[in-house]
C-alpha cells in the first residue's frame, strides 16, 4: 500500500480557544523555510499575508537595530515587510501583524512566515490576548 500512515493532528499546534469571548481557531506549523500561522474567528481563511524580516534574525545585529524594544520611554518595532497575498488588505490587520511580531515569540522566526489573521474586533485587548496564546503555541 502506498499510504503509510494517517494522523489526525496534522500540524505542530492546532487549537481552539476563546479570545475576548469569541471562539478562535489557531493553527501553527513550522515548515523548513517558513512558519505558517492561521488565527481566525470566521471559521475559514480570511486573508493571507507574507511577512519578511528586513534584518536577518539572530545574525549578530544588536538588539537596538533588530528590535523589538518594549520600554515605556522608548519603543522600537521589529522592521518587517508585509505583503498581502490573499483577501482584503486592511490597515488594522497589518497593524495587528506588526503588534504580534513585536509582542510575541513570532519575532523568533528564523526566516519568514505566512499569517492569516481574521479577528472580528481587532483592538489592543484582543491583540494582547492573542500574543499571550502565541507565546504558548510557539515553543
Amino acid at each position: 500500500m502506498c499510504i503509510s500512515s494517517v494522523k489526525t493532528n496534522g500540524f505542530n499546534k492546532q487549537l481552539s480557544c476563546k479570545i475576548n469571548g469569541v471562539e478562535t481557531e489557531i493553527v501553527f506549523h513550522a515548515f523548513a523555510n517558513k512558519w505558517f500561522l492561521l488565527i481566525t474567528q470566521y471559521g475559514r481563511v480570511p486573508n493571507m499575508y507574507s511577512v519578511q524580516f528586513d534584518l536577518k534574525r539572530n545574525d549578530g545585529a544588536p538588539l537596538a537595530v533588530q528590535g523589538p524594544i518594549n520600554h515605556p520611554q522608548f519603543h522600537m518595532s521589529v522592521p518587517i515587510t508585509i505583503t498581502c497575498n490573499f483577501g482584503a488588505d486592511r490597515d488594522e490587520t497589518r497593524s495587528g501583524v506588526q503588534f504580534l511580531v513585536n509582542r510575541s515569540k513570532l519575532n523568533n522566526c528564523p526566516h519568514e512566515f505566512m499569517i492569516g489573521l481574521g479577528i472580528k474586533e481587532l483592538n489592543g485587548e484582543t491583540l494582547h490576548e492573542i500574543a499571550k496564546v502565541l507565546d504558548e503555541v510557539i515553543a
Partner: peptide, 9 residues
C-alpha cells in the same frame, strides 16, 4: 466549529 487536521505520508 473546530477545525479538523490530519497528516499522512
Amino acid at each position: 466549529k473546530a477545525f479538523t487536521s490530519s497528516q499522512g505520508q
